[in-house]
Nucleic acid binder design. Structure first.
Lengths: 147, 147
DNA sequence: TTCTTTGCAAAGCTTTTGCATCTCG
DNA sequence: CGAGATGCAAAAGCTTTGCAAAGAA
């Protein structure tokens, strides 16, 4: 992943070990089901990897990456914010309230309707957050087995 | 508003001064543009009214009211949660990122699409949060005046 | 060298909890 | 009277900030 190097450079950020490691973490995560990481999860994962990065640094780097457009921040229903690698395309989320699994989707109909609604109210639409909460098939089956 | 009394009673909550006052606050707010109040706003409003209610009590009452279905909790983009009087009908929000004004809406197309999306992913849909962020007409005009 | 970044510790915010006191029913 | 509610203060999360030391360019 030598592109990380240029990635950071082009953002005007100095290439440092903590930044490279955090970016790599999100790139790894992006390939899995767990794309979304909280500051504390990043902190713990880094600690597991051996070398320590301070929690304050994690917060600072996440904020910088978000400002730079490299990461996207979400709040969902929980207390702490989580981040995911910011892809060019926008998407919304579908969260399992049992196991925390997160699916992503885009729906052009919904996007279009949102624009229309904003127009109707006289708002210029900047962005939006749409999050569906439900129970995934696996968790429903698990519940069935038990009860 | 003597219905407050019965309102609380029917929820199995003792009728106390802090509860009555907080409920009244939300009922007043519901009639205005500022339907949504944070715990701290409730706390301040009560303080303005004279008699003091502890902040801890505000938090406890808000939580109880939410559990009882009397209030609805939102997170929007900010750090602190806000509450609004829970109406029977669900609705989504449109927030002005400049002045904080909040509009409410329901769109049957969007609601239906959400259900379809959840189905497609095999999720049973529990609830959702949709919030549009933009700039309202007034704020855009204010910005234009300034240059 | 110079400006940025880091780590640590301390502080800030929002929210929760423990406990003695008070109050509704 | 007795269970539940309140207020205060202390504590618990999450996040930010100050500052001296370390590091990138």
């Amino acid at each position: 992943m030598s592109s990380d190097y240029n990635n950071l450079k082009s953002l005007g950020l100095k290439v440092t070990a903590p930044r490279m490691r955090i970016l790599a973490l999100f790139q790894k995560a992006a390939a899995t089901e767990k794309r979304h990481l909280t500051a504390d999860e990043v902190f713990s994962l880094l600690k597991d990897e051996g070398e320590d990065v301070g929690l304050a640094t994690v917060y600072r780097v996440l904020t910088q990456f978000e400002v730079a457009g490299l990461l996207r921040r979400h709040h969902f229903d929980t207390e702490s914010a989580s981040y995911e690698l910011g892809e060019p395309e926008h998407h919304d989320h579908l969260v399992c309230v049992e196991c925390g699994k997160i699916e992503e989707f885009v729906d052009v109909d919904i996007e279009r309707r949102q624009k229309e609604i904003a127009d109707r109210f006289g708002y210029s639409l900047d962005h939006h957050t749409l999050c569906l909460y439900g129970i995934c098939k696996e968790c429903r089956e698990k519940a069935k087995d038990k009860g």
